[in-house]
Design a protein around this nucleic acid. Structure first.
Lengths: 192, 192
DNA sequence: CAGTGCTATGTACATTTGTACACACCGTGT
DNA sequence: ACACGGTGTGTACAAATGTACATAGCACTG
């Protein structure tokens, strides 16, 4: 779905010389986590999904912890990138608010995967100091991006609102309509 | 910490006849999940923490899935109970808002554990239909409790805000001050 | 007070898992 | 051309895990 499948398919057998394999393994790992959860993510599942031998796992990553850390670091970086891009493109508070609405209500397909992975990250970060650094950096970047348009307090509130609304939209049977989302954003960040 | 430790200590050896053991196992399971995550929760760890033999696990629960489901169901029920109680005690919108602030900023000790378990539940519920029922019921109860004091749209917004603010307060290095939380709640649910 | 049925226990076992490691391959610089 | 160092591969193995099950003890009914 998201990660590229297998090496560019040269010969069916013997796919040696696969530059960028490490990076591809990280992408595939996120897919595996999204599907099976951290609890169900194993070296073997990732290897199978990426179509590489098991030994490749321990060669590229010190252990499974490093694999998970690398995957979640990439997730946080990419998500923060998108967040910053959407807000940078906005000009003025009006567009900024609409950008926030867009981020919350963004396409529920890819969004759902992202939210799901975020839970897993939060759950893991609570117990792993090195992942705490990842979530902290992520939050700091989000807040900074919001502060380009809103005062610091409002930025923090908006950040929390985005978090909560995203979760609710992902979990709820009938998600909150876009118009209501817009109303919530406007209440937190009024026309000043 | 939270769950009662071991049976009431009769004889050191042979603790047969332990009524309510099933319930105690559920409590201990939540403790184990909080400490090790769903990924690190095993029959043996729970059994050791509860001071019961391994065989007791498979006797009381069909499998580890049923154990996890029972634990998370209890978590959701208890949390929703507390939520309802806090809001029922409030009289008028003013007190209701303050109750919401209290729920968000509630003692960070027990709160932290609760939030942490919630991530785990969300992550698991995304893949397990029977747990989806648990989260749906929980959300419905929360919303209903809020609707005793606020109009439906505001209730949904508040519910999401509570979610987001709780997460941020649990994860952030320096959590948002109570006064700012109050301000956010007031912006979403103004004096009408 | 005897019997009956639920509860409790300990152990056994097949699977799965993380990880190590010895060997094969190939691009690259000399 | 050729060695060499990084990259890739397959397999092996100990540890941990979920689960089944035969046996044992206790409470409670009649």
């Amino acid at each position: 779905m998201t990660a590229p499948q297998g090496p560019p398919s040269e010969k069916p057998r013997s796919r040696r010389h696969d530059p960028g394999r490490r990076e591809r393994l990280i992408d595939v790992t996120l897919d595996v986590i999204a599907e099976n959860g951290v609890a169900g993510t194993t070296h073997r599942k990732v290897a199978a999904a990426a179509n590489v031998p098991l030994g490749s796992m321990t060669y590229h990553f010190q252990g499974i912890d490093e694999l998970l850390a690398a995957a979640f670091t990439k997730l946080a970086d990419l998500t923060a990138d998108g967040f910053e891009a959407a807000l940078s493109a906005a000009d003025g508070p009006r567009q900024a608010r609409e950008a926030v609405v867009g981020l919350i209500t963004g396409d529920l397909l890819g969004e759902r995967r992202s939210i799901l992975l975020t839970y897993e990250l939060y759950a893991l970060a609570a117990r792993r100091p090195n992942l705490r650094l990842v979530t902290d950096t992520w939050m700091a970047r989000s807040r900074a991006a919001l502060e380009r348009h809103f005062d610091p307090d409002t930025a923090r509130m908006l950040d929390a609102l985005i978090e909560g609304l995203s979760i609710h939209r992902a979990l709820a049977l009938n998600p909150m309509p876009v118009q209501t989302v817009r109303e919530a954003v406007e209440r937190i960040a009024p026309d000043s």
